[in-house]
């Protein structure tokens, strides 16, 4: 019953929350550049506009694959917020990412193909860290189930500071923020038109936007999971940390220019080794 409520709440509230998050993102970004910025509800206007545009279908397989992306992102979030198994959550997330990558490949346009290749590079960069997050939670709390992790006696961050730093690093890739927005970007002007979403337009692009909102809420959920434990007030702390983490991501987005994929891959794996693996080694010794 409780799981059912969590799933319904996620499906209904995540797009609203994700859209607002995106609106706040654009507003804060604009303020950081000394601009006034668009209205807070701008992402919703964009979404509704995209639904109202003419439908230009490049290829029906692409629409199917984007649909798969949306469904599996929602599935990932539902599993997570209903207290499911973290490993299963991350596998579903990877599957969703593969769907999105495939949708760009299917378009047969040089720009979206390049975007999909870069997306594969990004996945190669962040996947090891994502797996370490799941293993870290298991070693810290003795369970992969989110419902058990949030009932533990101490916050997981106490055991997993290195894993948290590593996850924050790959969060920049997952949120598609500069310096790691290689495959597609929310900013105008990039070297390969729009990368992944070049050939996606109208209502299908709206579905991609919607999936990103679901995904962002889920990713911040993972950030929160590091801080939630048995007492109820810890969830307030988790919300605070999520907001701070998102602000840091916006700041990084504004400060750093895009890097080459070689740097992204090397630095991400270095951080994964240095913080993630070392954290796990220390944890296995002291526990």
């Amino acid at each position: 019953m409780k799981e059912g409520i969590a799933i319904v709440l996620y499906i209904v509230l995540a797009p609203i929350l994700g859209g607002l998050l995106s609106g706040v993102d654009r507003k804060i970004s604009a303020r950081m550049q000394g601009r006034k910025g668009p209205p807070l509800l701008q992402p919703f206007y964009d979404l509704f506009k995209l639904f109202a545009k003419e439908v230009v279908v490049v290829n029906h397989v692409q629409n199917f694959l984007v649909g798969g992306f949306l469904i599996f992102i929602v599935f990932t979030g539902c599993l997570f917020f209903s207290g499911g198994d973290l490993l299963l959550v991350f596998f579903a997330l990877t599957l969703a990412a593969i769907f999105f990558m495939m949708s760009a490949t299917s378009a047969n346009s040089p720009y979206s193909s390049m975007g999909s290749q870069r997306e594969l590079m990004q996945m190669m960069a962040y996947e090891p860290m994502v797996l370490l997050v799941a293993i870290g939670f298991y070693m810290a709390t003795g369970s992969f189930a989110v419902s058990d992790i949030i009932q533990s006696h101490t916050a997981s961050i106490v055991f997993l500071p290195g894993i948290f730093i590593g996850f924050m690093y790959i969060l920049t890739i997952k949120l598609r923020k500069s310096p790691f927005d290689l495959s597609t970007s929310h900013h105008a002007h990039q070297e390969m038109v729009k990368g992944l979403t070049t050939e996606i337009s109208g209502n299908i692009l709206a579905l991609v936007e919607l999936s990103h909102w679901y995904e962002n809420v889920f990713l911040l959920g993972i950030v929160g999971l590091f801080f939630i434990y048995a007492p109820l007030w810890s969830s307030l702390m988790a919300v605070g940390v999520c907001m701070a983490a998102y602000f840091v991501e916006i700041f990084i987005d504004m400060v750093f220019p895009r890097v080459k994929w070689q740097f992204m891959l090397k630095s991400t794996w270095l951080i994964t080794l240095l913080f993630g693996v070392l954290n796990l080694v220390i944890l296995s010794v002291i526990r």
């Binding site: 000394g34 601009r35 006034k36 668009p38 209205p39 964009d46 506009k49 002007h189 038109v193 729009k194």
Partner: peptide, 22 residues
Amino acid sequence: LTPVYDVERFGIFNTGNPKHAD
């Protein structure tokens, strides 16, 4: 697009992609 005029106030967004443009 610069801070002085900032057309993003009206939701105007400079895209490089004809398929996204209005």
